[in-house]
Amino acid sequence: MNMLLKNREALLVVAILALVALITLRFPGFIAPANLGRVYNDTSILIILALGQMAVILTRCIDLSMAANLALCGMVAGLINVAFPGLPIPLVIVAVVALGAALGSINGLLVWKLNIPPIVVTLGTLTIFRGTIFLLTGGQWINAHQMSAAFKGLPRADLFGIPALSWFSVLIVALMFVVMTRTATGRAFFAVGGNPHAAVYTGIDVGRTRFLAYCLSGALAGLSGYLWVSRYAVAYVDIALGFELDIIAACVIGGISIAGGIGSVPGAVLGALFLGIIKNALPVINISPFAQMAISGMVIIIAVAVNARAERRKGRVILKKAEAH
């Protein structure tokens, strides 16, 4: 048990299994593979976004503008599709990923070059991005009938019995795992958040690293924009309103330290899944939406408390005899 407590990911897996067991007691159908697959598919976008947010939080920053970036990119994807219905969907995706990265780079540049606190920068761009959607559309919606079949169909497309939306998140998880563990940039995210002063001396450009993290979170928000709009077949100013809090909550539950430098891809994925399961299960076991919000909030606080405990446990070894093991 002590071993388990030390390993955040293992602890989360246990918590998720317990949660699923608990829900199954009230609603036996929940455990059916098809249902679990649906829950994963529902959580796919949150997983992608949480991974982007993780990169930013690791560098001791935060990106509050992700959901607004998603909404703007989703709207642009919709507008492109309305204007050029024949344009291949992969091209649309490339366009919105690039747009998302560009929007993220604005955050990154402001944090890097002007040294503005990240929370202020992204709070500002959050509002600007939402406002831009309104300017683009005048508040008009893009509805399902205006979108091409290919545009709406891609997330639902079946590959080996699993919808493409799920495959997208699997692909991003794999990609992010490689970036975080196998590239110098991924390592730099940890170093910058773990100790920015020390990172400078080792030749890491702290500002540039944060800029890259914001570009990454922006690109993933852009991709999520297309996925969101095509999946729900609607685009308007307020899509994913307030979703940034879910993204950050998934990271926090996943053991990513808000103080930076600590976190992992499996942690972020498990944190997102935990939140996704709660959000999916609470309605089926007939809990009111308001109680759902309260429960989600409680879960976040409990997760942070558990993480704080884990941090405290790691005292410095002062005794020589304790150092050997």
Binding site: G194, H197, A198, A199, Y201, T202, G203, S257, G261
Partner: peptide, 20 residues
Amino acid sequence: RQGAIIGMPIFQNVTLPSLT
């Protein structure tokens, strides 16, 4: 403040400036 990166394993601390 300027030396080790706490929270990172020993080996990653050592290799940080030599990643290339």
